[in-house]
Design a protein around this nucleic acid. Structure first.
Lengths: 282, 282
DNA sequence: ACAAAAGTGTTCGATCTACACCCATGT
DNA sequence: ACATGGGTGTAGATCGAACACTTTTGT
């Protein structure tokens, strides 16, 4: 079975999605059970969508899903279990949709405009013809939802996204070549990126993108790419060390026909600067 | 009919709540209809709670509700209509619970830990004996909820909170004398205040607390009180003018046996500094 | 020796902090 | 004239931005 979709540039995707199955829901029966009984396990009306940015070697990408029945792309998202915290739900959802684990996920905003989901984007009739989906209509999944936005960043070369039972695909896209997303997910990405950039000097976000011991050149590239602007190579280390984000080691790394660079580590006095800003409550 | 509650300091409150009625639900029938059919109008499982701070003359207060059936205090909150945006819902909820209008409400965080509502705080049995409440058990209101936190600030001397049909009372409390709140509302207040303080120099939040034309002394008192720290009287105006938050007028106000102070206005180039911080997206 | 990348210091202007006295007005 | 609160300026420290050359190493 094939499904078709166009991205912004008109390219047609044909992906055989029956090769993929959700790890714990690997039969249509289980999928149907999720549709019929899911609201016993999950809280209805609230979803959680994750803008996962991926960095590697001067490139910034974003993790985009294509869901079954939707001719278009969206952020990986899901529902919150009745027993878990929001942060736990975010971690689990990303793990399920993409098989990526260990992210430092941050809540940034909740989206709830009544027109955030254009139902025209959701071809219910088409979806209901797919195996396992026939009880979708009038199910708990079809009601209005409010969505909590989370973001994270990781090294995209280290993780290979694996789509789950709901997804046709789940893959990295260059941030400038990101296709138009369904629903209000374009806005979600834009606000997530804005938050990421504001928090970059105050939270140890970039730590996830680098080896334990890294060089100044490496972290410099990370910051330039994420902020999408040039940062003075001489001022940059001063600032990071002043903020207490990184520590210089007494080790060097031998690479290439040039001087061996010193190594640095991220400082896990994470919230240092952020806590300074947050003035003490009486 | 009387209800009792203790605050942190052990004082007992006795309030005759049958004097109060919700303006658009002024009969028990309507209340019962809300309990039985509310989920047609409102989205279940999601509430919205508002930390409304009140300032006047060096005092910082917070608006606290006491709800029927709950022996304790909480933030004014409510449910989101299916047709409104989150910001609209926040405005309507504050208006209904307290009759306060025209606030500049800001979303700051969503709270969803599974244990955020301690059901022991909610005396369902007691509540169901109240008029209008008898169908509460197993209603849509009794399921787990996630809550979106909003905050705002206003001049508490200008608005007299009016409790609605759900509330025994709704009143201003000195921030240092705020009683312990039910559920996770203590944490909500603490995080709201933190956010308010972080945003105070970047958003025209304080504009709501002052007359259109105000003196430096007045705005200085606002900032000192909200931040709970002393601010140098000579540096303070420089900073506000540098940030573009206020404009000096060519008018003075005649008060008291001393030099007449100049008047200032808030500058509605609101987000100026905030937008500077948010780096341009590609 | 040369190519390639690493590393480093100073100056200037802007901003923040601390600090104390004179001014205008009403009674 | 005096009591009350309003208003102002400067010096020093700190921070951020701009800017170019020397060092190390492998081939």
């Amino acid at each position: 079975m094939k499904i078709h979709a166009k991205n912004l540039f008109g390219k047609i995707y044909q992906i055989d999605f029956l090769n993929y199955f959700y790890p714990t829901m690997d039969t249509h029966k289980e999928l149907e059970d999720f549709i019929v009984n899911g609201s016993k396990t999950y809280i209805p009306h609230i979803s959680l969508d994750c803008a996962i940015f991926g960095y590697h070697d001067h490139q910034l990408k974003i993790l985009i899903s294509m869901l079954k029945g939707l001719d278009g792309f969206c952020l990986p998202g899901g529902y919150i279990k009745r027993t878990e915290t929001l942060d736990e739900a975010a971690g689990r959802i990303v793990k399920e949709r993409s098989a990526i684990t260990g992210l430092y996920l941050q809540q940034y905003k909740t989206f709830g405009d009544p027109d955030r989901v254009k139902w025209s984007d959701l071809d219910t009739e088409k979806l209901m013809k797919l195996p396992g989906f026939k009880k979708l209509k009038n199910s708990w999944l079809m009601d209005q939802t409010i969505s909590i936005g989370y973001y994270a960043i990781t090294d995209f070369s280290l993780v290979k996204p694996q789509p789950d039972f709901m997804s046709v695909s789940c893959a990295w896209f260059d941030i400038e070549k990101m296709p138009d997303l369904l629903f209000d997910h374009n806005q979600m990405v834009s606000e997530a990126l804005q938050t990421l950039r504001l928090q970059l000097y105050y939270y140890p976000i970039a730590g996830k993108l680098l080896p334990k011991k890294f060089t100044l050149t490496e972290i410099h590239a990370v910051y330039e790419t994420l902020l999408n602007k040039r940062l003075d190579i001489r001022n940059f280390p001063k600032k990071l060390i002043f903020l207490g984000l990184i520590n210089k080691l007494n080790e060097k790394r031998n690479i290439g026909p040039h001087r061996a660079p010193f190594l640095y580590t991220f400082n896990n006095r994470k919230y240092k600067k952020a806590l300074e800003l947050g003035i003490d409550l009486s």
